[in-house]
């Protein structure tokens, strides 16, 4: 086990090193006009992070993202469990949800903006729009695909319906639900950042667009780097828990 972990750690380091090497190589190829070098970016990032406004932008993005994710999880689980239990509603609504999922959600953004106005609520709404659906679909699937033999066992042990849900259905569904949460996490983040990029006065997404507007390559690269590091770190963590849950199942 520790051997495997050491292997994993080494592989991750190699991957990061390779990415930096690739970055440097592309930088040499395209030059300062389109890219800043890894070293310059890291230096600029250090500066940016310690700067005055950064904290405000970061906390803005994080607040929108956190609210959006909590809402996505709550709505996703509630709707997912409901549709999983209620066969008729599930059969009727699942195709519609899948269809909505397939729509490029950016096209809905103007409507959301009109409905929610500029600012926090639009960001949250856009994040929720992205994040809820995968959580609904994974939860619905998890509840529906509970092995019938486990439900039969619940019947033989004469569990009441609440006991059956709490002791059998829920724990049996957790690995799948967690996968939904993991996917929902990434998509909520994308949603909130996109919302910031297109109509916002604050936040990392705004900072990014600002960098593009001012042709401040180092700012663009720094913000991108920070987002990538955050998303990759959390994703890796969630993926590890996910794998552990699935291994047991």
């Amino acid at each position: 086990m520790s051997e495997r972990r050491r292997h994993g750690g080494r592989n991750a380091l190699l991957l990061v090193a390779a990415l930096f090497a690739l970055w440097q190589a592309i930088y040499w190829a395209v030059g300062d006009i389109a890219l800043s070098s890894p070293l310059a970016t890291l230096r600029y990032t250090a500066q940016l992070v310690t700067g005055e406004d950064f904290r405000m932008h970061l906390s803005d993005t994080m607040r929108a993202f956190a609210i959006a994710f909590v809402l996505s999880v709550v709505i996703g689980l509630l709707v997912g469990f409901w549709l999983g239990f209620d066969r008729l509603s599930g059969d009727a609504l699942e195709p519609m949800i899948v269809t909505v999922y397939a729509i490029p959600k950016l096209t809905l953004y103007p409507i959301l903006l009109l409905a929610f106005g500029l600012g926090l609520s639009a960001k949250v709404a856009f994040g929720v729009l992205h994040g809820t659906i995968p959580i609904i679909l994974f939860t619905l699937g998890a509840v529906r695909n509970t092995r019938p033999i486990l439900l039969k066992t619940a019947h033989v042990l004469k569990l009441s319906r609440p006991q059956m849900v709490r002791w059998i259905l829920f724990p049996a569904a957790i690995p799948e639900i967690f996968t939904g949460l993991r996917v929902g996490f990434s998509l909520t983040l994308i949603g909130s950042l996109l919302a910031e990029m297109f109509a916002s006065q604050r936040g990392l997404g705004y900072l990014l667009m600002n960098g593009i507007g001012l042709h401040n390559i180092e700012l663009v690269m720094s913000v991108t780097l920070l987002i990538v590091v955050f998303a990759a770190a959390v994703s890796t963590l969630l993926l590890q828990v996910d794998r552990k849950l699935h291994r047991k199942g």
Binding site: R147, K152, P171, I174
Partner: peptide
């Protein structure tokens, strides 16, 4: 309660 049942399919609970 004094009747117990065992099925052919594996009914062990994987999370316990």
């Amino acid at each position: 309660d004094s009747i117990g049942v065992v099925f052919q399919e594996d009914a062990s609970l994987p999370w316990l």
